[in-house]
Design a protein around this nucleic acid. Structure first.
Length: 407
DNA sequence: CGGTAACCTGGGAT
DNA sequence: AATCCCAGGTTAC
């Protein structure tokens, strides 16, 4: 039994600009001589081992005065599942703030979404609460945009199920798994943190970056910040990031900020302007940024740049593909060339919104979700060491087979 | 141009 | 207990 935690464990006093005024460019508040003073990551996550899964019992009691009461969202559960959308690796800034509630920043709004499973109208069980907003009238529009609600998940699922019987089997268990439409800057820096990394540490790193932004409020045990602008991000040094535990990704962050700031019209505008381009142009442009390769580029493209058929090919997707879509690649290793093969195969199978299908299938592969699926739909994940060994041994053979296949 | 090793870190498996 | 392996990869050789 432990006493209630202090509400603001995460703090970067040397970095945080004045809360109310815009950042004064001539006098950046960072003292580069004292990077060791910076130690925000550790306190951000309590040291106990069992903290993560336990949702606070009274997290609905928060110190913020809500601007307005809860308001209904006109969305059905088949169009949105909170647990299949927020904690599944497309955003790391939203947190579960009670059993059926998630909270996160959308630009400078801080919003909670709640699924009321006891409500009278189960066709429209969601409501939202604006904790903080410079313009509450605009918050709803921002929320709808963020949730990508102009796209009908029902229609997509229907279409995917027609193209793929396995998807049809999976679909009922993964209804409401939605692709968000995030801010491109926020999305970029989140996925810069993701390379060769695990969810827990990515979350900590993103928490660090976030805390460079304007403080928005506290909900449950979590502090929320507006994701920092490039200008604010530029105030943190590589040394500070390394000190904070970013490892080699520290130079990616610093480098990407610089590269973006050198773009005509400013990096944020440059990034957003990619929304109108073709996927290959978007990916090429993103890959010019340090730390952005094909995988990260696809994530940014899909999760923030309206590239609905971008396919981030990671190890999970690779597993799915070799099992169900391109079995001829089974046993081969994940190389860039094969990644694009897999991506093409996904688009061939699911079409224009293949990225959404990929997201659903990816979620189905997550250990947390697998537990909820009927066993016959679960892929057999035997002892890892064995399959890895086999894969390595069979690599040459399979590559040859693949080459002869495609010629 | 395709294949490989190195890269930071921390948690879990061996 | 020490080591290995892996995690939503990218880069440099």
């Amino acid at each position: 039994m432990k006493p209630p935690k202090p509400p603001t464990p995460q703090k970067i006093p040397t970095i945080k600009p004045q809360p109310t005024s815009p950042i004064p460019p001539p006098t950046p508040p960072i003292n580069p001589k004292t990077p060791t003073h910076l130690n925000p990551i550790k306190p951000s996550i309590p040291p106990s081992k069992t903290q993560k899964n336990l949702t606070p019992k009274f997290s609905h009691i928060h110190p913020l005065q809500p601007l307005q009461p809860w308001q209904t969202l006109n969305i059905s559960p088949s169009e949105l599942s909170l647990p299949l959308t927020f904690p599944t690796g497309q955003t790391f800034t939203w947190k579960q703030t009670s059993p059926f509630q998630f909270t996160g920043p959308i630009n400078s709004h801080l919003i909670s979404l709640k699924h009321d499973i006891n409500g009278c109208d189960q066709s429209s069980p969601f409501s939202y609460l604006i904790h903080h907003s410079p313009n509450p009238l605009q918050a709803k529009a921002s929320l709808y945009d963020f949730l990508n609600l102009t796209i009908s998940l029902n229609d997509l699922f229907k279409s995917f199920s027609e193209s793929d019987s396995r998807f049809a089997q999976l679909a009922p268990h993964l209804a409401g798994a939605r692709v968000l439409r995030q801010d491109p800057i926020e999305c970029l820096f989140q996925f810069l943190c993701s390379s060769n990394n695990n969810i827990g540490r990515i979350t900590k790193m993103v928490g660090f970056l976030s805390s460079l932004g304007e403080f928005l409020g506290t909900v449950g045990d979590f502090d929320f910040y507006e994701f920092p602008s490039l200008e604010r991000l530029s105030m943190v040094s590589e040394a500070q990031l390394r000190e904070a535990g970013f490892g080699y990704r520290a130079k990616y962050i610093v480098g990407a900020v610089k590269a973006l700031q050198s773009k005509p019209g400013g990096g944020a505008e440059w990034l957003s302007s990619l929304r109108g381009l073709e996927l290959h142009e978007v990916v090429d442009a993103l890959c010019t940024l340090p730390g952005v390769g094909p995988k990260v580029a696809a994530c940014i493209a899909l999760f923030s740049l309206d590239q609905h058929h971008a396919i981030p090919v990671d190890t999970h997707v690779w597993q799915i593909a070799t099992r169900y879509i391109t079995p001829e690649l089974a046993g081969a290793r994940l190389t860039p060339a094969l990644c694009s093969r897999v991506a093409e195969a996904f688009v061939g199978k699911y079409g224009k919104y293949a990225g959404w299908a990929q997201t659903v299938l990816f979620i189905g592969e997550l250990p947390s979700q697998k537990a909820l699926l009927p066993s016959h739909l679960c892929s057999i994940k035997e002892t890892k060491t064995k399959s890895t060994r086999k894969r390595k041994l069979g690599k040459l053979e399979v590559s040859i087979q693949f080459l002869s296949d495609s010629s």
